[in-house]
Design a protein around this nucleic acid. Sequence first.
RNA 1: GGAGACUUAGCUCAGCUGGGAGAGCGCCACCCUUACAAGGUGGAUGUCAUAGGUUCGAGCCCUAUAGUCUCCACCA
Length: 858
Amino acid sequence: MLKTHYDHNEVEQGKYQTWKDKGYFLAGDETKTKFSMLIPPPNVTGMLHLGHAWNTTVQDIIARYKRAKGYDVLWLPGMDHAGIATQAKVEARLREQGISRYDLGREKFLEKAWEWKKEYAETIHSQWSVMGLSLDYSRERFTLDDGLNKAVRHVFVTLYNKGLIYRGERIINWDPVFKTALSNIEVIHQDDKGKFYYFNYPLVDDSKNLLIATTRPETMFGDVCLVVNPKDERYLDIIGKEVINPANGEKIPVIADEYVDLNFGTGVMKCTPAHDPNDFLIGERHHLAHPIIMNDDATMNGNCPAEYVGLDRYVCREKLVEKLKQDGYLVKIEDIVHQVGHSERSHAVVEPMLKKQWFVKMGPLAKRALENQNTDDKVEFIPERFNKIFENWMSDCDDWCISRQLWWGHRIPAYYSKKDGSILVSEEPPADMENYVQDEDVLDTWFSSGLWPFSTLGWPNETADLKRYYPLDIMVTAYDIIFFWVSRMIFQALEFTDKAPFKKCLIHGLIRDEQGRKMSKSLGNGIDPFDVIKKYGVDALRYFLTTSTSPGLDTRYSDEKVKSSEAYLNKIWNASRFVLSNLEGEEKLDEEIDLSKLSLIDKYILTRLEKTITNVTINMEKYDFANASTHLYNFVYDDFTSWYLELSKVTMNHETKKVLLKVLKSIILMIYPYTPFIAEEIYLNLPYHGESICLEKYPEYEEKYVSEESEKIVSSLISMIKDVRSFKVDNSLAPNSKVRLYLNHVGNFDFQTILPYLKRFTFANEVIIDDESKKDFSSIYYIGELYIEEDLDKELLKKKFDEKIFAIKNELLRGDKMLNNPAFIAKAPEKKINEEKAKREKYLKELAEYQKKRDILN
RNA sequence: GGAGACUUAGCUCAGCUGGGAGAGCGCCACCCUUACAAGGUGGAUGUCAUAGGUUCGAGCCCUAUAGUCUCCACCA
């Protein structure tokens, strides 16, 4: 029997371990249709946050729903080594002990990193279990395990041999803190305050100056020329001439290139090919030198005048500006706000630098990904608009810089000959490894994540799992990693498996704090899901996360809403207690319900149940969990607890008890994917329950339980009761005050069937049916077919009637406007016209009745 | 500079393919009615951002405007 109070701690206790031990979450029943998904692997960098909780709960709902629907569900767990992020954490930990990774050396450092991984994997596992995620742990993977390493090497080598991976010297985004290259999307552009410095570059053999504006004076040491637009009439005569670079006194030429914008700045720009991507392209076109002027830590190098060597780039900037000011070259300084690139991980200002790195050639891969979206094999984004976001990015992306100057990750399988420096790219090290040196760099962490949908299933081996579960049915993720991850999975999958990696991609938003701000460490506004769980229970958190959210949109965390989720579960808990207490001692409740023995209200609730099952299922199939839960919520609160449970007390019998059991069971089966713990607890307390709710079937719509007629009659009954209640409040009568009711029998059903309920809920001491003599006494209140006799305030009654008459007249007006409109009659669908006509009839009748009663009062 | 989202009750948000404005929380009044006071009953509250347009009919479709937010982009 259920305890008097819903205590989430007690309810959650031990259940997950049992589910896991019993193997309920293991995939592999080949008699069923498969349904497969993978968890987006969390980084082994720390604790899971509310975003993870949201993302994984959505998947868990899908997994549990699909299992209940009879699928063989594979939900494969795993984690991501998260190269740069994890390495940063491990280095920070070492720094606390006063050591750097260089003190340890590569091998020892990696040992530390694996220790870190082990530690945090454990944390994540325990957090997954608290969340109740129905993961198949027997298939868990890690991006750095042997199988995935093999997949990564295979992909790298294959792409290299196809010419889709190349090594080249290009301008890349350099993170001077972590001292590694970054891909374009790892650079966050944000508005920073900066300055526009205007300098004079004196022309050689001329007294004139050229005015140049720059935001980065320190790069002047790397200037190789000035550039003007060949169409710019102002500067036609100076093209080909030389100027003095005031920073270092070197003579540099003025060249012409279409790139220069005539309307920006002074129309003349300086060109630093090694430290700016556009300057680099200009340099390529004009075969210019590209001197690098900074070290990896963004200090100035030997290509700068001695007094600046070793200075940090910003210190150098100040010093140089000061000097140029003294020398009379500085014309003015303007304050500006401009977009500056920062490293996603270190937040340092990214330095564009010319470096030799590995790249994936995106053109052909992107083309195929885009083309595939026009085929039957396309990935269906939910909501659909994310397809456009995906396509926009895909159709305009640069080559992907995949080498990272880190240690934690997949080491690039390229080997350089000690003899001649030639490159050997191969899945396995060369036999004569002593003659080679392996590339020091590792791959971008997203390189391996991009293979996740198939590498985790054993690819490149033709494993049974790969055959059965690939491609996946759905991928669930937040929109912020569409570029990082989703797009890469898609083009890698197409390239290596000739199929899209998943059929659907369900996109959800990000969770924000109560004020709508992003949760961040610096703001200190992060909310630990496990604090919330302690307070309200994991079921309440899960319910909140998946029901008060809208597809693809961000959501705000709301303590109030989690609380009300808990209140809802408490409601179900107590309703269950009521049902169970009524079932006690009853036998043969598992026998088929005898429709002929059902009361009016039993038929009513079954009808509402069947309709609810339909509505919930439709929305579950669309992965619209907010809508699905709303249908269930309304059924539970209104139909079931507010009305049926109360009404059932009046005519409780054996058949009603069967109905109570059936309806309760259906409710907990439908709430189960959202809130598995409380659902299991109640389930195990039901008579005739199975081993676990995890093994139960989802409720199915059954036509035989639907009775439109009963639904209609009980709806009238409910509105009568509501009217009497509201009548009492209006007349300051106690809710349980006795009344005498008169029913005028105009409907086509037997009023006797509703009498017991009407009496009980209106506290009527008498209900008189069809007594013509009682129709014109003065102290009455009339509602539909119902009269109430009482000593009443006539003025109040008049007012009530007048309000009602006014409302009906308004309705009539609305309808007449339509019906008197020839265009409406001509163009509106016939169904709608008939509806309006029927309403008109109904209102006219009501109006007449009310007016009659109103007249009696005068 | 492009792209997208959002603007509905005091607050947070629903409103499915156009056909009588909804929920939760909050608020007011009454009630410890035998599942539930984490409750029940009854109630108040909206020129659906603004202006046009399409339509018999617009919160919903189209256009423009304003405000908020996000993403993308190399403008020195």
